[in-house]
Amino acid sequence: MAETKHVEVDLEDIEKICEEFENREGAVVQVLQKVQEKYGYVPGEALELVGEVLEIPKSKMYGVLTFYSQFYQEPRGKFILKVCVGTACHVRGAGLLVDKVREELHIEPGENTEDMLFTLEPVACLGSCALAPMAMVSGTAYGKLSADKMVSLIRQLEEETVHEEETV
C-alpha cells in the first residue's frame, strides 16, 4: 500500500461544522461524518479538535471513531469501489468481483491504489439484491455485474479522470 500524505486541517472549518450541530455532544457521530465528507477521512488532528470543541475526552473520541466501520483514519482513493458481498451477491458470485479488482488494481480490501484513484471496499448489502452482484461507486449503483463489466467500469473511471485532468 502506498505511503499517504495527510491533509492540513483548519480549526475554523472544524468549528463551523460543530456549530452546525449547535456544539451538541450527542451529535459527535454526525460531526465526524461531516468531517469525513470534507476531507475524505477523519484526520487525527481533526479528531482532536472536534473533541476540544465538543468537550469530549480523547479516549471517548477514539472509542466512537473506531467503533463505526465507516470512519477512516487514513486518506482514501478518489473512487471507492464498494463491492457488495451480501448474501444475494455472495450467492451470485460477488467473490469473483472482489478477486478481479484485487488482480486488476493490485490492492487488497480496504487498500488504496498507489495513484490514490481507487479504494476497494467490500460492503455488506447495498439493498438491490435483485440485481446481484452489485457495486456502488460515488453513489451510483451498478447491477448485474460480471468480472468483465467490473474491469470496464474501472477503465471508464480511469478515462474520465484523465479527461478531467486534461480539461483542467
Binding site: 451538541r24 455532544e25 450527542g26 451529535a27 459527535v28 457521530v29 454526525q30 465526524l32 461524518q33 472509542g63 466512537v64 467503533f67 463505526y68 466501520s69 465507516q70 470512519f71 455488506a124
Partner: peptide, 22 residues
Amino acid sequence: EGAGAYVCGEETALLASLMGER
C-alpha cells in the same frame, strides 16, 4: 445517518448511537 455497524439495528444499540455513543 448510521455509520456502518450492523448491531446498531438492535434498538438499544441504535439509541446509544443516536446519542453519539459507541
